[in-house]
Design a protein around this nucleic acid. Structure first.
Lengths: 249, 249
DNA sequence: CGGTTCCTTGAGAGAACTCAACGTCGGTGG
DNA sequence: CCACCGACGTTGAGTTCTCTCAAGGAACCG
């Protein structure tokens, strides 16, 4: 909410030199559509953990955000004060999609690590969607991808399956070709997102380490047995969802 | 799949006399938008349980469907053959939204009870979305509502909370003012959807009956203690999602 | 160098699952 | 007409997985 009204930076971004690169929402669209989109982007700005939220649940949805760098989590807070993390948004991801059809944000958003987001006024998004079919399609696409991810996690999977799917999903979305995955969020956040106790997340990672599937060091995991991890994650179906973003027309 | 290519009925529906009435996706839009929508509706047709699916996961998404009457379930089948129900679609609900941004259906759809659906060719939907902002908004709205519902159920709630939320959600979506709720699907389907064993669903309903909260008779439940049921369901937040469809502009 | 947060490991408890059995209902065929 | 069969709903008993509670160590910060 603090940032919504008072961005601390006001430089106009240029999509062609964005660090999110091809992982961006706009990846692969025509130059014309990209320029339309770029025109709609008002500014980009930094977001830091602990410095207040990007926006809070119930706030008037003024903007749509696009993660340039870092990691943004969205969450709801129930009346008992318990946080429920709805998703982690990585570079190229949109934040605030679920407010497109409403006036207000149904969830809050905050940085997990020092991050940067592009700001797109909501009115510009709506206008753009009617002008550019490809961007409209992308919006629907991302929204339905989020839907699929949510549905995937709503299954009754074991802790091992959930963690395996999460690791693979993050690896895929971060787009690195290497086996190393840096998880910027805390174990508590991971557990909250996967609906597991923090301790269970730790235990599972330890167990997978003993089995030679993973290696854990600080916040970085190294995948040692990719086949086994995939086998574990397969029923959840989370990884297949995030990886086809770039492919779809 | 069978129906996708060979509808057994070909009568052009008229939105103004539809049994789904105001609960429909189009509820409350201008007459002009409604007519545009009605033009896009190709036909309506019956769907029966056990007679094959409306469409299957992986099928080319040719149409969007709108439930006129009955109940349609959408589901995925994992490689072990286990069905995972993603949602129940009641009169006025759209089926196939998650395929809007793709070529193929990510899930299958089948009737839970004898039902009727309107058929809208996918190409017409896309065209309509760019022409009519209100219909586009409704599409995004419904998609994000489904997202919210999925996220609600992904929480780690107790069996009692899940069942309570489900009953209230169904009651609200069926739109009846009475305390009676007919659940057309089997206990197995309910359990599958809520990620509970069939037996657990039974036990919970029995327990709620003993507590004087519910009364169960065949497939119809009667809510005796609405306050208690709401209290139980509240943390899940499922009921609040489905009930504001008619309100939003 | 205290204080805080995060990560990790252990022990016990509880909720839901699995396995199993039984009653009911509706359809089928002898 | 009735026996049989399968699907569904319900209830009981034991098991398992994850959570809760508890504690210790490591990293970070004022």
């Amino acid at each position: 909410m603090a940032f919504d009204s008072a961005p601390s930076s006001r430089c106009k971004p240029n999509c062609s030199i964005c660090p999110a690169g091809s992982r961006c929402f706009t990846g692969g669209v025509s130059m014309e559509a990209l320029n339309q989109w770029n025109d709609a982007v008002q500014t980009h700005m930094p977001v830091f953990p602990g410095n207040g939220a990007l926006f809070s649940a119930g706030d008037v949805a003024e903007n749509l955000y696009l993660v340039r760098a870092g990691c943004i989590k969205t969450y709801t807070v129930d009346q008992d004060g318990n946080e429920r993390i709805r998703g982690f948004h990585l570079p190229g991801d949109l934040v605030g999609l679920d407010a497109l059809a409403r006036d207000r944000h149904p969830c809050g958003a905050a940085a997990v690590e020092p991050s940067q987001v592009c700001v797109i006024p909501r009115a510009r998004v709506a206008a753009l969607a009617t002008k550019s079919p490809i961007l409209l399609q992308r919006l629907l696409q991302r929204t339905s991808h989020e839907l699929s991810a949510a549905l995937s996690l709503s299954g009754d999977y074991t802790a091992e399956q959930r963690v395996a799917a999460f690791v693979l999903s993050m690896a895929s979305r971060l787009g690195g070709a290497s086996d190393r995955v840096r998880l910027p969020m805390t174990r508590r956040d991971i557990g909250n997102y996967l609906r597991l106790a923090t301790e269970t997340v730790c235990r599972v990672i330890t167990r997978l380490e003993h089995q030679g599937v993973l290696e854990s060091r600080d916040k970085t995991l190294t995948v040692r047995d990719h086949a086994r991890l995939t086998e574990l994650a397969e029923p959840v179906g989370l990884s297949s969802i995030s990886s086809d973003w770039a492919i779809a027309a």
